[in-house]
């Protein structure tokens, strides 16, 4: 028998993550975004919404809203930070691990929060590609 988590889990967040949670830099609504994507986490019942403003295939601005826990807010904020200023192709290459690492790691049980913001990003980018399909430059990378 292995030692398992307690009923109300023993959670230890990194200082970095907590700092992000307390002072997120990219949270809020956006007017006239190029794309908006929303994803829910069926496991815990959260919602995550991502706004991207894209010009010439470059993410010039990004913002998010969260109906979720501290890890959700922190990972959302970090996801935005990691893709802001990047090209769409660069953003498409972002990995979940990079998000978690940038926050000084995530408790295992909270990994799905990073997955949620990551999935929302993928969805937003796919939507952008779709809306551009045939009109502007073809997807690259």
């Amino acid at each position: 028998m292995t030692v398992e988590y307690t009923e109300r889990g023993m959670l230890k967040y990194s200082e970095k993550l907590l700092e992000r949670f307390r002072n997120p830099k990219h949270i809020g609504e956006m007017e006239n975004p190029t794309v908006v994507a929303e994803e829910g986490d069926p496991q815990c019942g959260d919602m995550f919404r991502l706004y991207l403003k894209i010009e010439d295939d470059r993410i010039v601005d990004a913002k998010f809203l969260s109906f979720g826990c501290a890890a959700n807010i922190a990972t959302g904020d970090m996801t935005v930070e990691l893709v802001k200023g990047k090209t769409v192709a660069e953003a498409e290459r972002l990995q979940i691990k990079e998000i978690a690492d940038a926050l000084g790691g995530l408790p295992l049980i909270k990994m799905h929060c990073a997955v949620l913001s990551y999935k929302t990003l993928k969805k937003a980018l796919a939507e952008y590609r779709k809306s551009r399909a045939g009109s502007v430059s073809p997807p690259q990378g």
């Binding site: 949670f21 826990c69 959700n72």
Partner: peptide, 29 residues
């Protein structure tokens, strides 16, 4: 419209300790 673990931690920043029934604060989600 809000999530309890976030609320709990924000109240903690203000010096107030409370508990939450949110799924996010449990290991079973």
């Amino acid at each position: 419209g809000l999530e309890g673990e976030s609320m709990m931690l924000h109240l903690d920043l203000n010096g107030i300790s409370v508990a939450t029934g949110s799924a996010c604060s449990t290991t079973k989600l």
